[in-house]
Design a protein around this nucleic acid. Structure first.
Lengths: 133, 133
DNA sequence: GTCAAACTACGATGACTCTCGTACTATGGA
DNA sequence: TCCATAGTACGAGAGTCATCGTAGTTTGAC
């Protein structure tokens, strides 16, 4: 039996390498799903790191993002983020590059992502001003 | 979550009737908790109805809010909303009046509540009116 | 071809959630 | 006093979630 990719949602374009990842099309992204995805501390952490990196390059690989969990748990969180429509993932060699779906999120839920990011930063400063940066 | 005095949260003032409800003080409200509370369709529905009513009076009683679940499930959702800091509840006779904690939320997470409400309305309009295919 | 790196799949486990029904308490009136 | 109204408490069932460990796949380099 094949790994059987469920769904068959539009995969925006030809991946730069080979394997394809299923992303929900913009119209299928649900507010409840996005809020749920963002309500987990680990996933919020991923999103913040992606946002911080955003200006520079095209994305961060999973292993570049520092999470205090095992790799398989990490995979789980990245999948939740992708399937809820928060992030985009493309294979690049053996790595997988992650980026926020800013355009889609802003089109559907104007201001939401930014207010969550701002709130997360504010809360982090409030809670632990004496910590990593 | 034992009902037992967790934290001794400040109950903003003398209740107009008698029984006291425990609310988290502003500083204890966590972004993850708020996002989680808002990620449930029923609770989002409650919050939207409270927002719609907001201009007028002081609050809606639980039974005025239309939810397609039993009373005990309803109680559960109101508690999650209260304990996460999203709503405020006060007893008024046999009823319990509910209102959004707008000031606290805006102070902690500027713009978040409004962008969620806007997003929820937009999504409802997108999904609701046509229901085409 | 072989090997390491990066990530996935699968199965398990313990915790939490949403839902309900039934029984209970508190309040305000007839 | 008795009763209806509004909501709570408790317990159960079904489901989902976060986490892990182990085993597997894909890719690129040697």
């Amino acid at each position: 039996m094949k790994p059987g990719r469920r769904g068959a949602a539009v995969t925006t374009a030809a991946p730069s390498s080979s394997r394809a990842l299923v992303h929900p099309p913009r119209a299928d992204i649900r507010l409840e799903g996005v809020l749920h995805a963002l309500s987990d501390p680990m996933r919020l952490r991923v999103v913040r790191q992606l946002a911080r990196d955003e200006a520079g390059l095209g994305g961060l690989s999973c292993s570049q993002i520092d999470l205090p969990v095992t790799k398989s748990t990490s995979t789980h969180h990245f999948r939740v983020l992708r399937e809820s429509g928060v992030i985009q993932q493309i294979y690049r060699g053996t790595a997988k590059l992650n980026g926020l779906r800013r355009d889609d999120l802003n089109a559907l839920f104007p201001g939401l992502l930014d207010s969550v990011l701002t709130a997360a930063t504010a809360q982090a400063e409030r809670t632990g001003p004496a910590r990593g940066h």
